[in-house]
Design a protein around this nucleic acid. Sequence first.
RNA 1: GCCGGGAUGGCGAAACUGGCAGACGCAGCGGACUUAAAAUCCGCUGGCCGAAAGGCCGUGCAGGUUCGAGCCCUGCUCCCGGCACCA
Length: 803
Amino acid sequence: MPGPDTPTPAQSPPGGTPGGPGAPRGRDIYPFDEIEPRSRKRWADLELFRQDLEDNSKKFYVLNMFPYPSGDLHAGHGRNYIMGDVVARLHMMRGHQVLAPMGFDAFGLPAENAAIQNQTPPAEWTERNIARMRAQFDDWGVGFDWDRALASCRPDYYRWTQWLFLKLYEKGLAYRGSAPVNWCPNDKTVLANEQVLDGACERCGTPVILRELEQWFFKITEYAQQLLDDLALLEGWPEKVRTMQHNWIGRSEGAEVHWQVEDPPHAGPHELVTFTTRIDTIYGATFVVLPPAHPALATLVTDPALREQIDTLARAQAKHQAEHSFAEPVKEGLFTGRYLLHPLTGARVPLWVANYVVMGYGTGVVQCVPAHDTRDYEFAVKYGLAIPQVIAAPAMRETWDPSRGDKLNDGEGWEQVAGAKIYVGDGVLVESDKYTGMPSVEARAQITAELESKIAGRFRVQFRLRDWLVSRQRYWGAPIPVVYCNKDGVVPVPEDQLPVLLPTDIEFRPAGDSPLTTSPTFLETTCPRCGGPARRETDTLDTFVDSSWYFLRFLSAHDSTQAFDSEAADRWLPVDQYIGGVEHAILHLLYARFITKVLFDLGLVHFREPFRHLFTQGMITKGGIKMSKSKGNTIAPDYLIKRYGADTCRVYTLFIGPPEKDAEWSDAGVEGAFRFLNRYYRIVEPRLSLLPASLAPMPALGDRALALHRATHHALSRATIDFAEFKFNTGIASMMELINAISLDAQDEPDSFVPGSDRAWAMGEALRLLTIMLAPVAPHVCEEIWQRSGLSSGAGGTVFRMG
RNA sequence: GCCGGGAUGGCGAAACUGGCAGACGCAGCGGACUUAAAAUCCGCUGGCCGAAAGGCCGUGCAGGUUCGAGCCCUGCUCCCGGCACCA
């Protein structure tokens, strides 16, 4: 039993300063370099993170978004994984069956670029990085069930990604279509709209150009309504992410309107269909516009000179959209020479081509009401088109409301445009035949009904969401399992012939077509249907397809007979806690939700949403910008761990600020965390025997002992609540408060801590409970204390399974 | 432009959602220990006035509600994120 309190010098380990040459100089610091390997070995021996999936009665599936194996983890990554590890360990301590797997999102461009640069096969480069990153996770003390590790680039994984493609194809959810696509001239690849940031390639920053290609799409739009509706089920998601998805899906209600073409061309369309959310303004529609690239123009416009002008406009619009410059382009248009007939008034309405209409939303044809739409107004003014008012704004509020200051609230629904003020809000209809005097809301319903009865229109729901373009003209991805046969056309590769393996006889060049087209062994094949000669699809799948289902594969990581076991999936999913960066708030999460719903409809899973709770952590910045390899502002964990130990890195990373907010890295802050752990160790280490002693029944407590007892339980309850709510920063703060209280108490004279005394009991309790609450954050040192104090005799022999 | 979030000491931030503003940490200052320094331990640390006791002011700005407002309401300013000619 250690002497109660002779001022004990901090324990310097025998044999010199820990931490090696980089360690802080001349300090008495706790021997983390001896403790940490010891604790890690213990957990490895105990297989602390192994999960055999047998008992799901108290299952807890915690998942970190799997990383791209770029080569090195840095301190910025740590936030995600350390948080996940804390959550996993917390639930273990509560007696839950924790499933904490990890994998690698291993297809993608960097491996291919590295291959071009170093002439190393992408697989080799990738596997090397995976090995290195796995070791780094270990160094952080971040535990996973590595037995279930997967990498999306391995055939035993992408075989099932290909299987997933076939399932979608069978259901008619994967289709081939021609589309103008974003083309990055640098990476020589097609980019999804989502991968274009401000007109430039997300990855390399090169301005993208448009190109027409045959592409594979997933019909996510078929699930738009479900994806929107089920956001309501996601109570465990940040409001911000739900809002972003809501806006991305972008539902609006309106009407489509059929306009007869006056004197239609023989081969051309006899009517054009517009979509509008403001059918109440239809009496003010004085022209209709088409984008210059609209296919109907081919037959509607026959004059070669005009056609040429339209094509020029189309090219300019395409260029502008591709470059996506911030300035809105000047509105430009051309009269097609044709007229449409207004479905309600029969009036002749001119048909124009305009560069402010986008293909791909609604019908691509827009009826224009210049009096009540800023864009139409601008266009009408420029080209001298009529601007009749058909909506009367509600009377301005003229009451002088003192609580609103001295301003009149007259701005609602009014917009400033081209030097004029126009009303774009709802109001009362004027100059609208029998609807005159009717409020907008009612008029919308009635006019839609009339159009429906005349078969000249109908109610329509429109989404902003577009189908998911999954083709990539790259090598390092899952080959799309399809062949093209001269006789049978598009033929899916039968399931029992999967995987379609990536060939290795590939030449990696910085430019040119998809590398797969350069491999004759790959390209030439036989048709699975007729046995005749056929050609393989050379496109590979978007890596977002790989990551749209990986959370299922962890359950069946070694199963070579199926993608995942449905029964196990139903028992262990949804993921209870998903953790990752907010940059995936839209795409990855939307795609994973979509695929889950498809699998639900296929009867392969019986839950509708894959992730019950989601936490999106802020990034760690250095010098105000995101820590990243390319910016050269990373903090290497290896260095920090060597100097301060993994526990200090963990405490600091969690204490740095509210986890959902960005935080600036500070070396001084790391020192603070280190000081805290040193303090803990310095106080607890000489008093180890007090910890088990405090398991004895509570004696009558004097004032001092009672105060410490209360402080202990105050801290425990705060830390428990805060950790459950992901408020790790304040949870750690409460532990720091407790160590301050303990420290003051511990300075008292030796007599105060005679064994069996109330002070000794309270001190033992404080140190024991602090060790428990600190354990998920600083697991190594707490495990050490737990072992050395003899508390480990319980069920699991570790602080994380206290029995 | 539309949608969402935010603004609190020298700095990162707390404030259990209407009840002592600034917990905890960093930085700084003072003291103990030391030949000295480092480390450690103790104390101080929003601003102004005051020797002190104490007083006054203070949560982006202007108002309001309330016994009481960082928190609720109205109107602004600025910052961050998402979407963006979506009809």
